[in-house]
Design a protein around this nucleic acid. Structure first.
Lengths: 227, 227
DNA sequence: ACCTGAACACCGTTCAAGT
DNA sequence: ACCTGAACACCGTTCAAGT
């Protein structure tokens, strides 16, 4: 793992090796940890060499994002379980786990929605195929898939953000401590203005990530059966 | 409007004036348009003066985000319509319109989920109050509100991203042209790998933003009635 | 074709100094 | 208490020059 960190590089530079190193940096320190300065150091090269393989930082981030998502979705579709509902849950959970493992994915994915890249249709395809298999009317394919996609990415991103900020927090807190801090903050809000936020603060503290996440999927599935 | 753009500043500096100028810059050119360099120029001052009123750029962005969202939600709750369902639609649409008017809000809001700031409980409160009023069981308050919040922010952000990138696109395209380009790109994807994405490309091109957005809300509301 | 590395035009932020 | 503005330590990106 430390083999390429110092001294001359062992293998020729390639787009793949650059993306691989970028993902490592993103995983270890979030979006701000990926700079061309430390990237060139890690790869024992100069900035010009990287720009030979990659157009700019935006493209590098897009390729890294698409690669991680493609892997996550590929794993999800290997095991083809019982029916389309279970498949849908598996795909959603696969995305969830990927974002949990790479917290920077959350923000990056929401940025990719601006662009016309490959990752957005990839995600719509994975979720949408299962929506179609559930037999919902074609006229509602776009809406239902959109609801699912946005919920999956939003909820996963929020949870990943929690664990990410917990990881880098100064007070050495873990995820539970961070959730506890947020929950406590919500409980101390003004009782008149924030009666609801205060009421769910406890649920937020104690909730099991995956369980709640899947409960949300099931809620949408229930609504889907009626449309 | 151009009064404060050049020459000496007319009024004393204040947190409010700084935030106001920041929002103007964000609205006009997106997140990258907000720099301390042009901010000091607009306010006819030096960077040190801004740092006297505001801790750093992160705080400035957080305050700007919270301000715009607070305004949007205040407008939404003024008119208290028929029942909680209509109120929910009004609040959701209010957020939707705010993000459409300030496209940078989308990305900024997803970033605020990492932090323990005031904007996230504010949004949960507005949506959650109506969820509670619908009479759903307390045990599911957190999940149902989460589904709604993530869908609202995700869908609004995606649409805003569309119009935002359309606005700044080189080929002078408007929103319809941008959607058309994306739709065409999806139609040209591999038929085997992307059968679903190709199938909904047409719906994406022709869809009415608000109509589709509200259809998504209704889908969740339908699922909510069953839980 | 692929890589080097100095240089450019920018950032956010700090801080001694002024009023 | 509030503001000035030079300076610092960084960015992403370019490009003439090498192999």
């Amino acid at each position: 793992m430390t083999a390429t960190r110092k001294g001359r590089r062992s293998a020729a530079l390639s787009r793949e090796r650059i993306v691989e190193a970028a993902v490592e940096l993103l995983d270890s320190g979030g979006e701000s940890a990926l700079t061309f300065r430390v990237l060139t150091e890690r790869l024992a090269t100069g900035p010009g060499a990287i720009y030979w393989h990659v157009a700019n930082k935006d493209e590098l981030l897009a390729v890294a994002t698409d690669g991680v998502v493609a892997d996550a979705l590929a794993v999800g579709s290997e095991q083809s379980p019982a029916g389309p509902e279970d498949e849908l849950r598996a795909v959603a959970l696969g995305l969830y786990e990927a974002i949990a493992a790479h917290p920077w994915l959350g923000g990056q994915l929401s940025r990719q929605f601006t662009r016309n890249g490959p990752v957005v249709p990839r995600i719509y395809e994975s979720i949408g195929r299962r929506v179609r298999a559930l037999g919902v009317p074609e006229a509602t394919w776009f809406v239902t898939t959109s609801v699912l996609v946005h919920y999956v990415l939003g909820a996963a991103g929020q949870n990943a953000a929690n664990s990410a900020s917990a990881r880098t927090s100064a007070d050495g807190a873990n995820r539970a401590d961070f959730l506890d801090a947020v929950s406590t903050a919500w409980e101390e809000l003004d009782p008149d203005e924030y009666s609801f936020a205060r009421a769910i603060a406890g649920q937020m503290r104690d909730h099991d990530d995956r369980e709640q996440f899947l409960a949300g999927i099931d809620l949408v599935l229930a609504g889907l059966r009626l449309s």
